[in-house]
Simulated assay, not measured.
Amino acid sequence: MHGPFNRMGRRKPMNEINVVPFIDVMLVLLVIFMITAPMLTQGVQVELPQTASEPIEDTQDQEPIIVSVDREGEYFVSLGGDETQVSLDELSERVMVLLEREPGTRVLVRGDRNVAYGQVVTLMSTLQNAGVANVGLISEPPPGES
């Protein structure tokens, strides 16, 4: 008689390993790591523009808050054409007040190309601390493109 039973009716030990439970555990771990990996990244979230990108279609009726940094490193806040020079601390307070008045308003950063990268990162960190979830960067298309 062939098979897993011998003459006494007892089972013979199998010499094969069942790998299905191991595969199940590995798939569960893979899913867990895929879900948690994006949560581990830290820093300011920014939607970086591409050089040959199309302009964003404005689906909102309200004007965005535009924060500018000029060549000398001075900060300006603009809402609806009214541009005011502010310090970094005033900028945070002013943006918080504007967002409390009009929640969901987009915040865009316009920086001079000669401003130090660290100063723009400091500005974006200040905006994030003021409650801005997403910061957009304003850029111009390269010469020759319209």
Rank of each mutant, 00 (worst) to 15 (best):
M1I: 07
P4E: 12
P4I: 15
G9L: 11
G9Y: 08
R11P: 01
R11D: 10
K12M: 13
K12D: 07
P13I: 14
N15M: 14
N18V: 08
V20P: 00
P21S: 11
P21A: 12
P21E: 12
M26G: 09
L27Q: 04
V28R: 03
L30K: 05
L30T: 11
V31T: 13
I35H: 00
I35D: 00
T36V: 14
P38I: 06
Q42S: 09
Q42T: 14
G43S: 07
V44Y: 02
T51K: 12
T51D: 06
A52M: 09
S53M: 14
P55L: 13
I56Y: 10
E57S: 05
Q60G: 06
E63A: 15
P64N: 15
I66H: 01
S68E: 15
G73R: 00
Y75K: 04
F76S: 05
V77S: 02
S78N: 15
G80R: 07
G80C: 08
E83V: 09
T84F: 04
S87G: 06
S87Y: 02
L88E: 08
L88I: 12
D89I: 13
D89H: 02
S92T: 13
E93K: 09
V95C: 03
V97Q: 06
E102N: 13
E102G: 03
P103E: 07
G104F: 03
G104W: 05
T105C: 04
L108D: 06
R113C: 08
V115Y: 01
A116C: 00
Y117H: 10
V120A: 03
T122P: 00
T122A: 14
M124N: 01
Q128H: 07
A130I: 11
A133M: 09
V135R: 01
G136W: 08
L137T: 14
E140W: 07
G144Y: 09
E145D: 08
S146W: 11
